[in-house]
Amino acid sequence: MSLDQILRRKAGRIISRPPTTPVSEIVNLMRAENIGAVVIVRIDGSVAGIISEREIVAALNKHGSAAMQLFSRDIMITDLPQVRPDEKIHNVMTMMTLSRMRHVPVVDGRNLVGVLSIGDIVAARLDETNMENAVLRDMALSHLAAA
């Protein structure tokens, strides 16, 4: 299964904000949308970075309540992996594990086409595993019935 297939199944809107968005707005957005990260995009639509709960907690630890007055560009992670829609799940799982990222932007060229969480990836992999198990079970039953 490719990321493109997961994105189509997910069929959600892409929530992103520009680098000038106040952190307080990012926090409110994450709470309102019940999401764990917001992709930060430049005016041209390319990915500038990402803000997750981890970056917000780090900013609060460093700046206290003044962190809410900062801008997304001040706390976002800029050195983040990005993946293409045709990437395989296994490769993305490995990359997310090694980079310790729980959210990854999916880009087609320079354009953001979606965001996937580790939960999305694990759910898709479980679906694949369940399908593989069902096929193997059916093959075993067919083989036994033929014998």
Rank of each mutant, 00 (worst) to 15 (best):
L126F: 07
E33Q: 14
R9V: 09
T21D: 04
L136M: 13
D86I: 07
T21H: 01
D86F: 07
A48L: 03
M95Q: 14
F71A: 11
D44G: 03
N133Q: 09
T94Q: 13
V83Y: 05
V92W: 06
R110Y: 08
S72E: 03
R54M: 06
T20E: 14
M93S: 06
T20L: 09
I35W: 01
H63Q: 09
R137N: 12
T78A: 07
V38E: 05
S142A: 15
S117Y: 05
L80R: 00
P19D: 07
L29Q: 02
K62T: 07
R17L: 14
T78Y: 01
Q82L: 14
M95N: 03
N111H: 13
M30P: 05
K10H: 07
V23P: 06
M1Q: 13
D79S: 14
M93H: 01
L112D: 08
S99Q: 05
N61S: 13
I50N: 00
G119L: 08
N130Y: 10
L80N: 00
R13V: 10
D138A: 15
L136V: 01
R137I: 04
R54D: 04
K62C: 03
L70V: 11
L70H: 02
V57Y: 12
I50T: 03
N34S: 12
G114A: 13
A58W: 08
R100L: 10
M76G: 00
N133R: 11
D138R: 11
V104H: 02
D120A: 11
V47M: 00
R8A: 13
